[in-house]
Computed example of a mutant assay.
Amino acid sequence: MTVVEPKLTLERRLLREHALVIACDEVGRGALAGPVAVGAAVVDAPRSRKRVPQGLRDSKLIPEARRDDVAARAAMWVAASSVGWASSIEIDEIGIMRALGLATLRAIADLRTQGVVPEEAIIVLDGNYDYITPAGGRGLLVRPVIKADRDCASASAASVIAKVARDHLMVGLHDEHPAYGWSSNKGYASPDHRAAIREHGISRHHRASWSIADAPTLF
């Protein structure tokens, strides 16, 4: 399989018309347990002229053993970065798409605390749907881009930064409920995770609306 190396072609073109590019990508959307996380990475003109960090890819294409290092170098390369979260409870209450929008707005709000002005940026959102504007992001310029996490270096950076943050959180939750194996499956629907749900029910960290229907709820 040919691995596509992300480039800065789109970012450089957008930076001719906008002061900043904020790339956003989600991780954890399809998990059975844990929050969804959205990474946000800011690229300005000076960063767009720097070399893309070696090994930067869509987080799914980076071996787990190398992700921490790649994420750390990506965070140093971009002008600013953040991760926004929406909890499993919020996902159950408002649905995954609204939760993604909420998590993204939280990531953008954190960028504001770092001095970033989102209204001066164009937001490159991985995928084909703008879930930011319906969540309350009016006034922000959002551009969905299919496969941005694969092709655009800024979105690759957002992807791996969010992936590492969420994986660390799920590993930290493992000791609370070791039966589910979150240290290895990170809350996704592995066979062992599904088997543990059938045996033990679901925890307070599970997305109740997503898990096995006949599993009892444990608090």
Score class of each variant (00 low, 15 high):
Y180S: 00
L32E: 05
V3Y: 09
L10C: 00
A208D: 14
D44S: 15
L169I: 03
L8W: 03
G39H: 05
V21L: 04
I22T: 03
Y129S: 06
V142G: 10
L169E: 12
V43H: 02
G201H: 06
Q114L: 14
D130T: 03
A72H: 07
A79S: 15
V117W: 10
L111T: 08
A107F: 01
L102I: 12
R13A: 13
L105Y: 03
I94R: 14
A215Y: 14
L169T: 04
A33D: 00
Y188E: 06
M76T: 13
G84S: 10
A121V: 05
V52Y: 14
A189L: 08
A213D: 12
T9N: 10
A157D: 00
S184Q: 15
E5M: 11
T104C: 11
A74P: 05
D126W: 02
G101D: 08
D149H: 04
R112E: 15
R150N: 09
V160K: 00
R51H: 10
I132T: 04
A158Y: 04
A213E: 15
R16G: 13
V117L: 12
A41Y: 02
I202F: 10
T104Y: 11
R51K: 15
V160Y: 02
V164H: 00
E120Q: 15
P63R: 06
G115S: 08
E64Y: 11
P53I: 05
A179D: 11
G127L: 09
W77S: 11
G181A: 09
P216H: 10
V38T: 04
M1K: 11
S154K: 00
V78K: 01
E90R: 12
E120N: 15
S159T: 09
P216E: 13
L125G: 01
R138W: 06
S154D: 01
V4R: 11
S81H: 15
